[in-house]
Design a protein around this nucleic acid. Sequence first.
DNA 1: CTTTGATGGTTCATTTTTGAAACACAGCGT
DNA 2: ACGCTGTGTTTCAAAAATGAACCATCAAAG
Lengths: 303, 303
Amino acid sequence: MHESYSLNWDDLKYFLAVARSGTIRGGASNIRVNHTTLARRIEVLEERVGSRLFDRSKAGLVLTQLGEDLLPYAQKVEEEMHAASRVIVGRDAEPRGTIYVSMPHGLAMTSIMDDLSAFSHQYPEIELNLTFSNSIADLTRREADVSLRVSSEVTQDVVGRKLVQMSQAAYCSRRYAEQITDNEGEGLQFIGWHEAEEAVTAPWLQSSFYPKATLRHRVSELVPLITLAASGLGMAYLACNLGDRHPDLIRAPFQKPLPYRSLWLLLHRDLRNTARVRLFVDFLATRISARKNEFWVAGTVTL
Amino acid sequence: MHESYSLNWDDLKYFLAVARSGTIRGGASNIRVNHTTLARRIEVLEERVGSRLFDRSKAGLVLTQLGEDLLPYAQKVEEEMHAASRVIVGRDAEPRGTIYVSMPHGLAMTSIMDDLSAFSHQYPEIELNLTFSNSIADLTRREADVSLRVSSEVTQDVVGRKLVQMSQAAYCSRRYAEQITDNEGEGLQFIGWHEAEEAVTAPWLQSSFYPKATLRHRVSELVPLITLAASGLGMAYLACNLGDRHPDLIRAPFQKPLPYRSLWLLLHRDLRNTARVRLFVDFLATRISARKNEFWVAGTVTL
DNA sequence: CTTTGATGGTTCATTTTTGAAACACAGCGT
DNA sequence: ACGCTGTGTTTCAAAAATGAACCATCAAAG
């Protein structure tokens, strides 16, 4: 570890500020810090250097010989930092680079995949890194730049954008639908989730249009739920944008769609001005909003 | 104020550490910080840059494309800092530059001036900046690199070095001394300092060999005290190294020297390894110690 | 299969840094 | 002489950073 590591490299900003303005307050004003802070940072720097960098006189602070010797190095460091900043700013301003996107598994089977495909087609310089997970991506920990969530509300310290409200309905295969009559679900079976094994019903089933139906079987993921319902094992409650899209599923008769959750688009506030992220977010929001009736369907019960 | 000022330039150390080692703990160990600190600094840097600089994988932390783009700039900043450090270290290692020395007025008339002259003669590359003041130079505020003080003890947060113990005695002109008899100072007058106008004596006078002497006249500085005593106005109590050196002053008869204070050499702990300061301190201490009987004279009363 | 060591991450107490307010001083203008 | 402005310095409370202890996970070795 080198001698230079005992110096705080950031102190060069303060050194340069005083060297250029000749006063503590002037320098502080120029770099937007409190003048006390600037005075202290110079003091600490001088201690670590082991010599004065400025002589204090009535005329202000004047560079010592050592201060003058070090000035060119500080200026070169600043130039490098400016150049690095141009790389950063330039990169952000250009719509290129990678966007890390996180979303729940269920959205993998929706039309939103078409949106991602269209975005990538339109912006070939931007690469999408997709993560499917039911756990909430921690944006502050940079697990993702953008996160799509299906939720009633968001509580994270992120910039949230509600895209659409969703509907849900009961779905089954065409064959299963043939046995359905207008009898509040008597004799029908819904595939359950995490309900207890011995439970034959659940609150969401009791408040549906099939309160007499029972729970049978359990799944822990969305994909098997859809696949099993489509093959006739039972009925499933699904978001409409998902169920309506599946070729082997129909909405069960004798019901109306119910309100479901909302689709949110979340991103960390620090990234909202990055060109590619802004592009992606706007692109997605525009397309999804344009077909909101795919998510919130006609006839959905309103409370 | 430039975009680069929103970045903490010191974070480059952390960036380079992770880029080189590929792990948080490895990088932290290399630059001697806690690994948590390193992780957090990288996190903050990524937030300010607005993009990831490292991808986290099982293999460790791998530079992103932006990380790779920025690496050369970070390396150049480091090189400049190393070069600046060489200037600093090289300067300190060589006995050249300025030493700021502070001392009380009284020492300006002593043989210590000869010491400074000899030092400057022997080390012409070193410049001395001398400040004479009775107020204590604040070493932590860099008012001086080295401070000579006459004091019983030192309380400042500095590296203190007691050079010699001093004696004091009553001095007067040769003419004035002709009237002095062995009568405990009856009819003698001492020039006073800050004692009240109406006061005719003081504790230091009462405990001297001339308790019957009285105070007459006042001075607020040492130079006029010496000058007036030398011209016969009255007697003066002076440090022996000062009184013995004056051509027109002699020690008054019928007394013994009394203990006075000590001569201290103080410096701020951060400067003690600077070559020129170390040279100066050692030079001064050696010469003054070699003639300690000029300060603590023979016959001084011991308590 | 179990143990060990290395890894990144979380939590909490302590230390350090920062900003704001107040102060002292000098210079200038009225 | 007085008031104003700009300067650097001091003090204190709040915010930020740091380090230490602990945790969970994984891979390698026994």
